[in-house]
Nucleic acid binder design. Structure first.
Lengths: 342, 342
DNA sequence: ATATCATGCTAAAAGGATTTATTACAGAAA
DNA sequence: TTTCTGTAATAAATCCTTTTAGCATGATAT
């Protein structure tokens, strides 16, 4: 790590002014009528000595930190960490860095983080909003802070967002389960949450149930429920209702469901889960899932945000990513087979 | 988000100088002999209006960005993302932020990231070094850039590091497998890598094998091997050698191993993996693991780094975290039982 | 001969904090 | 009265860029 070299060092070495160097480095040579010869001389020299501007000084002067704040529900959930990984990549390619945080669906924590990032002068936010964040986000919005929501949105708020086609995903998954004549009782496991993604998934489930004129069985778990308690409740729900099949609203709920099945030695009902997980492919039987194209989501998110920062978004971006139902063993193997092996 | 308020606004409102306010805010009131009355007045006012210094200006002036760079092998691996989560938390509590990146064990990418972070003026690094980074790290070291390695270290480099007791972990896991008289042929799956953690795990395995006067069966996989190819190789390794048991050097190698078993319909050998994974607990049978206390690792890492930044490390910190062997079904269920159910 | 214009470059301000060097003053000592 | 000391506060420099406003110069138009 050679000693940091300054723009003034360059100016001095070349016997010209700092202003000129700065103009050239910022691509304003033509606009500012700097001669081509000098421009080349400067660029060559800069390259030779490997000068990199001091980001902090640059940020202070321009008011752009070139840092984006990413606040997700839980970075250790593979769905979010995969999105984060892609976002990170694209951001870097555009000269931005990411600072991230998990807010564990806790509104207070989310507010703190938003404030923290604001104090750090992030240039924009990507957020999976928990409930109770309307006011804070509305505030950001009013102040024209670049903001894109994802996974869920706030209906009363006119913000950009990128979400999955949750209704369709849940509808198709439920229809798929109901298409098997074995499956009369198809339950749905979700969270006590009015977040849009949960609302839409529930509606998709209900629509499919109604279309088949079947009875709905719905179980909601508290968002911050302890694992043991959740497992017990899931067992009771599946067992007491003698469910044939279950749709799980998130991957971790499905994992809790699997734990319940294992712990209580139950027969595994037919099942589908939202959002894939390494576990699901290897589970015996493999678990069917409604998957989101994380890389498409990341792409839309970061590009919408960068466009907003550059003032290039003509209109509000309400982006809905299609989902895909991946059928695996858990929703097709016959109950009899399952009962034999378990 | 109220309009940002400056230190000069405060000075003006209170009819005093910016200098005085700054001294007070930086806890130098006594040292600079600012009267207690004024100090209190300023602090109260600052609190009332909710002033927060502009980080960028502060950083530019002090040369401290209050940002730490975290470069790990793969942030989507739960082992690393859990460590990251804890590090993040402690860093925040100490007024630091983290920017992170995955380097996928690619030395070139790692070098770029280190340079990128350097240009961003991070105050320190936490790195899981890939091979081929000696020179770059040595350079950081020479320039007194605060640096802590983890998961593995560079033997020729006098840096702080935090690693697992890999030798002991592998030794105990292998001994555990060999303790079962059924298990004659115990293999070891690792990576083509001379990183210290891999070297030490191999030595631990060898020691246990030698102690039991057994034959060693070692399979190394290319670091960037495609999944399909790795699975095929693992199948061949386990099948051709008719192994009774296998120790896997990482969680993702073990997952590839499980995929091989599933894909080729093999009998599951007894097995133990390094580093836990959600999958392992739910797998049937559950997979035994050598676990690392991620929170202890995170603690040691961040505190060593912060101490280094503050110049409080009297001596080189070479921290070895004890490991724990968690025995689950995969290494105790009898082969016969396994053969029946699979 | 003077005003106008385009060209090519630069001095200095600005961004918002920290820190060094200095001032102003009251009271004690000479 | 003058000098010194200690206290309480501040002016100005500094960190490193970007950006505004402006200065020379020579050519063209009037």
């Amino acid at each position: 790590m050679r000693k940091r070299i300054l723009i003034s060092d360059i100016a001095k070495s070349l016997g010209i002014s700092v202003t000129t160097v700065s103009f050239i480095l910022n691509g304003k040579a033509k606009e500012k009528r700097i001669s081509e010869g000098l421009t080349k001389r400067v660029l060559d020299y800069v390259k030779k000595v490997g000068y990199k501007p001091n980001q902090l000084a640059q940020s202070l002067r321009t008011g752009q930190s070139k840092i984006l704040g990413l606040i997700v529900e839980d970075i250790s959930n593979p769905f979010f960490s995969n999105v984060a990984k892609d976002i990170e990549k694209i951001a870097y390619d555009n000269g931005y860095h990411i600072i991230y945080c998990s807010m564990d669906n806790d509104a207070t924590k989310a507010k703190e983080l938003i404030q923290l990032f604001y104090d750090r002068q992030v240039d924009g936010y990507i957020i999976t909003p928990p409930e109770g964040l309307e006011d804070t986000l509305s505030n950001l919005n009013k102040n024209n802070v670049p903001l894109v929501l994802f996974d869920r949105y706030i209906p009363t708020l006119e913000t950009h967002y990128v979400v999955l086609d949750n209704f369709k995903g849940a509808f198709e998954a439920t229809s798929h389960l109901l298409a098997n004549p074995q499956n009369k009782k198809v339950g749905y496991v979700s969270l006590y949450s009015n977040q849009t993604q949960m609302r839409d998934r529930l509606e998709g489930y209900m629509k499919a149930i109604d279309d088949h004129q079947q009875q709905a069985y719905i179980k909601k778990i508290k968002i911050d429920e302890e694992e043991g308690e959740a497992i017990e409740q899931l067992h009771a729900f599946m067992h007491d209702n003698r469910l044939d099949a279950v749709l799980f609203a998130t991957n971790y709920l499905a994992i809790d469901g699997l734990k319940a099945v294992k712990q209580y030695g139950m027969n595994l009902p037919h099942m589908v889960a939202f959002d894939d997980h390494t576990l699901f492919k290897l589970h015996e039987p493999a678990i069917s899932v409604v998957t989101q194209d994380t890389s498409a989501i990341a792409n839309e998110l970061i590009h919408t945000l960068l466009n907003e920062i550059k003032g290039k978004n003509k209109e509000l971006q309400k982006i809905v990513i299609p989902c895909e139902l991946q059928v695996r063993g858990s929703s097709v193997i016959s109950q009899e087979t399952l009962e034999q092996t378990s």
